[in-house]
Computed example of a mutant assay.
Amino acid sequence: MTDNGSCYRSKVFAQALGPGVKHRRTRPYRPQTNGKVERFNRTLSQEWAYVRAYDSEEARAAAYGAWLHHYNYHRPHTGIGGLTPSDRVHNLAGNYN
């Protein structure tokens, strides 16, 4: 899902999606649609990407996995009553069909 920017309406972008991928666009002037992802991006910048100086982009990328684990398994989220996202997902390990 993307916004309606011109780069997402190009033939090059459509080709990059590949076969079998349905491109969905947000409704114009509808911040409710992508508000959660915008908040996640803000959290990324405040808690991971720019929280400290990294020696290189590779070092920043290497720290991402640990931060994402913390975000999903240990960081309480006020929007879901202080739970973590992993607390909210049933069958997280994929053991049940």
Rank of each mutant, 00 (worst) to 15 (best):
D55P: 08
G65R: 02
T26N: 12
Y8L: 08
H77K: 12
P85N: 15
A62E: 05
W48G: 02
N91Q: 06
C7E: 06
A16W: 07
G82Y: 00
R60D: 09
R25V: 14
K11R: 12
G20I: 10
H77N: 15
F13D: 02
I80G: 13
R60Y: 05
C7K: 00
A16D: 09
G20M: 08
N95H: 06
F40G: 00
K11F: 01
H70Y: 07
H69I: 07
G94F: 03
P85T: 03
P28Y: 07
P28M: 11
G82W: 04
V37T: 14
V12R: 08
I80N: 09
E47L: 00
P85R: 03
R24L: 15
A66G: 10
L17H: 00
R25W: 09
Q46W: 15
A16R: 13
S56L: 11
M1C: 14
A16F: 13
P85D: 06
G20H: 12
R39K: 11
N91F: 12
H74T: 05
G20L: 05
E47R: 00
T78G: 09
A63S: 10
Y73W: 06
S10R: 01
A53Q: 04
V21W: 14
R9Y: 11
K36V: 05
E58L: 02
H69D: 00
C7A: 06
N41A: 14
Q32F: 02
P76D: 02
G5W: 00
Y54V: 05
H23A: 03
T78C: 03
T33S: 05
W67D: 11
Q32K: 01
P19M: 10
P28T: 02
G82E: 04
L68R: 10
R42F: 03
F13S: 12
K22A: 14
Y29L: 09
L83S: 13
W48S: 12
S45M: 11
T43R: 01
T78E: 15
N34G: 01
N72K: 10
P76M: 01
R9N: 14
R25C: 10
Y54D: 04
S56P: 02
S6Q: 06
P28A: 13
P31D: 03
S45A: 02
H70S: 07
A16L: 13
R42D: 10
R30N: 09
H23L: 01
S86G: 06
T78Q: 11
G18F: 07
A16M: 15
T2F: 07
R30Q: 13
R27K: 06
Y64R: 03
S6C: 09
S86T: 00
Y73K: 08
E38G: 00
H70V: 02
L68I: 06
N91D: 14
E38Y: 12
N4F: 15
D55W: 13
R24V: 11
V89W: 11
Y64T: 13
L83I: 07
T33W: 08
A63C: 04
P31N: 09
L92D: 12
P19V: 08
E47W: 05
N97G: 12
G81E: 07
N41P: 04
W67T: 02
Y29W: 11
W67P: 11
V21A: 06
T2S: 12
A63H: 06
T26E: 12
E38M: 05
Q32V: 08
H90C: 15
F13K: 03
N97M: 03
N95Y: 15
E47Q: 15
Y50N: 08
A53Y: 04
R75D: 09
T78I: 11
R88C: 15
S86K: 05
A14D: 11
V12G: 05
A59S: 04
R27Y: 01
